[in-house]
Amino acid sequence: MPVRSHVTARQLRLGIELRKLRERASLSSTEAGRLLGTSQAQISNIEASRVGVSADRIRTLARNYSCTDGALVDALVGMASERPGGWWNEYRETLPTNLIDLAETEHHATALRVAQVINIPGLLQTADHARALFRESVPALLPHEIEFRVSHRIKRQSVLYRKASPFPYTAIIHEAALRMQFGGPATAKAQLEHLMAMSELSNVTIAVIPFNGASFPTSGHGIDYDYGPVTQLDTAVLETAHGSALIDSAARLEKYRLTLDRMESAALGSNQSRELIHRIAKDL
């Protein structure tokens, strides 16, 4: 297969998971190449996602690596069979790569759970709220750069409106985020009203942690946890000052699942959360 001109987040993840299988089998890339009837360089290229890999080769590699997890192998075959491209590619020349990777990861997730302490989750933001946030970026963004980011953020929200397979989405939001008035009172009120409307969707759950709620673990960073078809293919996305970081380590994924569990246990139920959002909006 030809060498790729650019590698997507999904292609990189496939290579990473194949490398994990090989390392679990305690095989070197040279040994793996010999078993496959190819070279060490070809195995390295596959694991670095510089070249594609067929479904048959993935199944052969899995057998060579003594992987008996059929669900994982099927999921990896599915990743290899995906057609390249998606709506996010139209932004590849105008937005940072981490934003493209974020949209692609969300698109392929089976469910999403997020936690935010200061900000409203991106998939629940109105265009005006998002625009107000981007205007405060450091360094400052030009007007057209802000609009590219707003457009990208709104298009990401399409995962919440899938008709064929509704996308289960749980947002854990601290009361502090609800009381931030980015863009001024009118924009903040419209944002809260939008949250209440979104909470009525059957696939969306909004849970608010009140100021007087129980303590919970957090670093202050937002956490997006994208569930894959199997647990091994979950992805945690951390928001940092330098952009989004995608986490695939099993130990770290377990840590973030437990963190989200504890944050959700500290939150109000859906009805109480909706009532609190309504009271805050009423005061604006």
Rank of each mutant, 00 (worst) to 15 (best):
K20S: 01
A251D: 15
K255F: 12
S39H: 12
I154N: 06
M196I: 11
G228K: 03
L35R: 13
V7L: 05
D101L: 08
L192E: 00
S28Q: 05
I223Q: 03
G183R: 00
A115T: 05
A127Q: 09
S215Y: 09
V237R: 05
E90C: 06
R10P: 04
V150Y: 02
D226Q: 12
I280G: 00
K282C: 00
L268H: 11
R50Q: 09
S199D: 05
Y65A: 02
L102N: 10
E254M: 03
H242A: 15
R162P: 09
V237T: 15
E90P: 05
Q11F: 00
G184V: 08
R135H: 11
L178F: 10
S244N: 14
S49H: 04
S5C: 07
G52H: 06
A71R: 12
K20N: 03
L276I: 01
D128M: 02
A111V: 10
L72Q: 02
A115H: 07
F216N: 01
R34L: 07
N45D: 06
K20T: 02
W88Y: 12
L102W: 10
S158T: 13
R22M: 02
Y169I: 13
E82R: 15
L141H: 01
D234E: 04
V230N: 02
I223W: 03
V117P: 01
A241R: 08
A140V: 00
M180K: 05
L124C: 07
V150C: 06
L233T: 02
R179A: 10
T218W: 05
P143S: 07
G33S: 09
A80F: 04
E145F: 00
T205K: 06
K282S: 07
S137N: 12
L160W: 13
A75E: 03
E239N: 14
D224P: 00
Q181T: 10
R10H: 09
R24D: 15
S199V: 05
R83V: 11
V237C: 14
A103W: 12
D283P: 00
F216E: 01
G184T: 07
N203A: 11
R262N: 10
V138D: 07
T38I: 10
L99A: 08
R279K: 15
E47P: 02
S265Q: 08
T235R: 00
L18W: 02
A236R: 01
T60I: 06
D261E: 13
T231M: 04
R59P: 03
L238G: 14
E145S: 08
N64K: 09
Q232H: 11
N64C: 13
Q272F: 07
E90V: 13
T38L: 09
N212I: 11
R34G: 02
A130L: 07
Q116N: 14
T235F: 00
L233C: 03
E47G: 04
R113P: 01
F211D: 10
R153D: 08
S81W: 05
A186D: 04
L133V: 08
E82H: 11
L12T: 13
A267N: 02
I154A: 03
S26T: 14
S215H: 11
G86E: 11
P210W: 13
T218I: 04
